[in-house]
Design a protein around this nucleic acid. Sequence first.
RNA 1: GGCCCGUUGGUGAAGCGGUCAACACACCAGCCUUUCACGCUGGCAUUCAGGGGUUCGAAUCCCCUACGGGUCACCA
Length: 490
Amino acid sequence: MADRVRTRYAPSPTGHLHIGGARTALFSYLWAKKHGGDFIVRIEDTDVERNVADAEEKQMAGLAWLGIQWDESVDVGGPHAPYRSMDRTEIYEEYLQRLLTSEQAYPCYCTSEELEQDREKQMAAGQAPRYIGRCRDLTEEERAARVAEGRQASIRFRVPGGRTIVVEDFVRGNVSFETDGLGDFIIARPDGRPTYNFAVTIDDALMEITDVVRGEEHISNTPRQILLYEAIGWEAPRFAHAPLILNPDGKKMSKRDESIIQFIDQYRDLGYLPEAINNFIVLLGWAPSGEKAEEEIFSLAELIDIFSLDRISKAPAVFDTGKLKWMNNHYIKEASLERITELAIPHLVKAGRITESLSESERAWVTRLVGLYQEQLDHVAQIVDLTAFFFREEVVHSAEATTVLAEEQVPIVLAAFVEQVARHEGELDPEEVKKLLKAVQKETGYKGKQLFMPVRAAVTGETHGPDLRESISLLGKEQVTSRLNTFLGN
RNA sequence: GGCCCGUUGGUGAAGCGGUCAACACACCAGCCUUUCACGCUGGCAUUCAGGGGUUCGAAUCCCCUACGGGUCACCA
């Protein structure tokens, strides 16, 4: 086996990049990079019926967005091309023939109906459903007879009986399986296309993958693959099976599950940051050790340094949406205002708040607007609702605002403020607003909440909100004046 | 049903024979602040699914039970 660590992420092109897939890819990537090795993305498209047209691009785009860079794949090529299973059929064919010739595999003529019946019988009898071996020891004549009947042959691997296969797993330690519980499994369909277990074994071996990282659902496939490696005379790679990811209810995440956003591009579209997603996802079933155990904010570079497969947990990981929000907010606060603004603009455009092409001053205005909310955003899309009052034609007063505005000093304070604003020349920058408010205070004698709350309530319609001076400044002289006058009935 | 695996607070999670059982999210209280948000400070498991054992000593090792999960496809 090559010394250089090589890992791979091998999705089937059936949909967008999923949380679970992203985690598997991340783990694989981190492990390879930690050892200065290679990370490969291979497309496992042997189930042609299920393949979805642009799923391959979607998967790769998702990885690219996360910053998970591959060294070899369908787009950049590499020394072990091609990287798409269905482009490798002649390779599988070669090994299939080899197994057939050595009688380690044999043609099976059973129909789906027959197999289904077998299964039902076994289930009814309380037995484990597995292939009963009807075609296992057919003579040449018997085979010829089935072919003459017009039956099609799939190819089964002849599982040796009475053996114990030990899977050496980074996370689970040694897990053993009895071959007697396996049953001969199909490695190629009647049309010659390999099944997953066969293709994955051939591909991993030929691509010199040293460490296979994948989800727990694959662990029971592993003994089959080990048997295949053995039959062909290859050394098996090391394995690491990551635990399942459960939804917040502690149930297995299903594709239809609506309690949780499952696809990476959905997070991207909502304004989650890739570094937050990576950081959150890596903690799904993995935890750092030693002094790093008390930390949980990690950059990709840092993760490459501290990640280790044997720190992956055996217990399922629960997707904690509250934690994700907190983490994304953390990264949003850390990001530059320019970057967050850039992400916010499309949302504001889509909501009809601003136009697509912004003049320099408009852009500066939007930047300040976003800056007002940057620290409280869980995800950037929230900017639309948060900034609603800036764009409304008429101020809508909340119940609390109405209460505040009923106080007796309100008309006096507001009238004084309108007057101050009207008398002011030039732009209303925050410092100016501060001075005007101060002047109102001197003039009317009202200060603190009695002064600020009426102004806030009348201008924004809310009793809560971001910095008042900046808000008023952003609203501009005209808007503030008209809103105030409307309220005062002028 | 067979075979594999898991089970620490409201939640995520560290812990690998001797700790007052980390840390974080959430929550509560206080501070900061014109409000909200942010931030800061403090509080929050006498107990590690339950029951047996091993040991001077167990969340940590062994066994049983319960619960949860994976898998037994011509899907990956």
